[in-house]
């Protein structure tokens, strides 16, 4: 028996919004420690890794490890039927081929349940090696989304250059060149507005705007985003999900032809 309950459907809606542009379907691996999802996008350029800890749920029970392959388009249809403040419960029997998603209004007067067919997906889990990153940048998630959106107008690629002074995002194309520099913030009143750079050595890497923009669909989950970079390894874009876990996106760099 698997049962996981969250106080607010809005969190699950935001999580789905953060992955459904990259993934058509995905396997949710459930164990007593929580829910894990790891999947590559169709073109195998990026990898999504979602971790939801069991202690972050209002109720969590998972008697036997369970892998639930879900069509994310179908899940989005179901979540559209929830009000943001509804409680949401996911339930499945051991070895079941369906999952039930139930919404309850705060006053318990409306209860709806949706049974969704599960899919058998080819699971290809990738091993992610530990990396000592050259640069780790923490910045407001909305600022990162804005930069990715703005620079995508100028080029398919964005160059991220990080030094101890700051981080520079550049794009160059037919229109010309765009550069956006963010300096490390001195003192800020609000932690969520800070730009913080931890640098071992400077790094310059090039990434596809299309994927960065897809990652920023996770912006509503978190006030801050963390970018971890190292020469010739994938970028890690991480959004914390408060009291519940995190979503990490890995993006392979572009290299000179």
């Amino acid at each position: 028996m698997f049962e996981a309950r969250l106080g607010q459907a809005t969190i699950l809606k935001k999580i789905l919004d953060a992955i459904k542009d990259l993934l058509n379907e995905a396997t949710f691996d459930c164990s007593d420690s929580g829910i894990q999802l790891q999947a590559m996008d169709n073109s195998h350029v990026s990898l999504v890794s979602l971790t939801l800890r069991s202690d972050g749920f209002d109720k969590f029970r998972c008697d036997r490890n369970l892998s639930m392959g879900m069509n994310l388009g179908s899940m989005a249809k179901i979540l559209k039927c929830a009000n943001n403040e509804d409680n949401v419960t996911m339930k499945a029997q051991d070895n079941a081929d369906t999952v039930t998603i139930m919404f309850e209004s705060a006053n318990q007067e409306k209860v709806s349940d949706y049974e969704m067919k599960l899919m058998n997906l080819d699971q290809e889990h990738l091993g992610i090696p530990e990396t000592d990153f050259s640069c780790v940048v923490r910045m407001p998630a909305m600022e990162f989304a804005r930069i990715c959106r703005d620079l995508a107008q100028f080029s398919e690629s964005v160059v991220i250059c990080c030094t101890k002074e700051g981080v520079k995002f550049s794009a160059s194309g037919d229109v010309g060149t765009a550069n956006i520099k963010l300096a490390q913030t001195g003192s800020v009143d609000k932690e969520e507005e800070a730009v913080i750079i931890e640098m071992q050595e400077p790094v310059t890497l090039t990434f596809a705007c299309r994927y960065l923009n897809a990652f920023t669909k996770a912006t509503p989950l978190s006030t801050q985003v963390q970018l971890s970079m190292c020469a010739d390894v994938p970028l890690v874009v991480e959004y914390a999900i408060k009291d519940l876990g995190h979503i990490r996106y890995y993006l392979a760099p572009k290299i000179e032809d």
């Binding site: 350029v45 990026s46 990738l126 091993g127 994938p234 890995y250 392979a252 572009k254 290299i255």
Partner: peptide, 12 residues
């Protein structure tokens, strides 16, 4: 050139 993520992370 766009590298593939599988050229960095290997199948388990």
């Amino acid at each position: 050139m766009q590298k593939s993520i599988t050229s960095f992370f290997k199948k388990k």
